[in-house]
């Protein structure tokens, strides 16, 4: 279906129209809307810095009260204890456990869906599958959280790992959170990977079919490798999304802060702690709130780094075919 081109575009685009006052006003209005997002980002960074690193206004920031050394090298996170300790690692441990499990679930599922959609599915299948996948992306995360707590843990993990294999599965555990977050990022991996798979030039497929490749050979040995950097970028973005996921993990993973690799134990994530800190606060314990900003700052830096890396990978990918 080709959209009809509006009249003012057919004449060729000039900037003449923008001299008219109402055009200017519209342009200004649109610019304002665009600036809101920029302004919000800047405000967030300012707030994080103000409460995390250096106070321009208000009480002393977190890192003016707690040394970076303790933050990075202490092994316990007890911000509200009478003898507080601020080692970020238990929270980072929880976050990466959840995100790791999420990627182990979400990446294969998303990638296989993408290959199917791009290489195998006909228009009819696509027209059903794509909206359903997108629907999955629209489910509120709090619903995923309860799904993890009241379905995945008691009806999937406990029978499978506790009854059958003898592991002990806690009510709140990292695995259930990871699994639901994995399901959550599946549509993201699928749709981004599908885009890059479809942008692999037709000629590559034709050439490999001409050499006698089966559909599987073509998909897995030619198209996927050709789109690998784009796929990798989508995986990284999914990972970043999983790291930032909050509601589902707060509900499913519990509040136990520990360093460990047992997926069937409760672990608090960085986002989970931020929720915790904003819910209740002891009197005279302003440091708890400040510590949440420090955690948020770390989270921001982690996701920013991942986003930048995935952008770099994507850009490199574009250079190959353009």
């Amino acid at each position: 279906m080709k959209p009809s081109v509006p009249a003012f575009l057919r004449k060729g685009r000039t900037r003449k129209g923008s001299d008219k006052p109402h055009e200017k006003a519209i342009g200004f209005l649109l610019l304002l809307c665009a600036l809101v997002s920029v302004g919000t980002t800047i405000s967030i960074i300012l707030v994080l810095v103000n409460d995390g690193i250096f106070n321009f206004v208000g009480e002393k920031a977190f890192f003016q009260q707690v040394s970076l050394k303790q933050f990075l090298f202490d092994s316990k996170w007890l911000p509200d204890s009478p003898e507080p300790r601020f080692g970020i690692w238990p929270l980072v441990n929880g976050t990466f456990m959840v995100s790791g499990i999420a990627c182990m679930i979400g990446v294969p599922l998303g990638l296989c869906s993408a290959v199917y959609l791009s290489e195998y599915a006909g228009p009819a299948e696509r027209s059903v599958l794509k909206p359903v996948l997108e629907l999955l992306a629209g489910v509120p995360t709090v619903v995923y959280g309860y799904f993890g707590l009241v379905f995945v843990t008691p009806y999937v993990l406990k029978p499978l790992f506790e009854t059958l294999l003898g592991f002990e599965v806690d009510t709140f555990n990292v695995a259930s959170g990871g699994i639901v977050v994995g399901i959550m990022v599946t549509p993201m991996v699928a749709s981004m990977s599908e885009d890059v798979l479809r942008s692999v030039p037709r000629s590559l497929r034709d050439a490999s079919y001409a050499l006698g490749g089966t559909q599987f050979d073509v998909s897995m040995r030619v198209v996927v490798p050709a789109a690998l950097s784009g796929i990798l970028a989508s995986v990284l973005l999914a990972f970043a999304r999983a790291i930032g996921e909050t509601m589902a993990v707060t509900i499913a993973c519990g509040t136990f802060r520990r360093i460990g690799v047992n997926p069937f134990e409760s672990m608090q994530t960085m986002t989970g702690f931020i929720v915790d800190a904003s819910f209740g606060e002891d009197d005279a314990q302003g440091i708890v709130v400040k510590s949440a900003f420090a955690v948020a700052l770390s989270l921001f830096l982690i996701t920013l780094t991942i986003n930048v890396i995935s952008q770099m990978i994507l850009r490199r990918y574009r250079e190959v075919y353009e």
Binding site: G254, T255, S266, F279
Partner: peptide, 8 residues
């Protein structure tokens, strides 16, 4: 301090 705490 090593227990599961919740305000809820």
């Amino acid at each position: 301090d090593d227990y599961s705490s919740s305000g809820d």
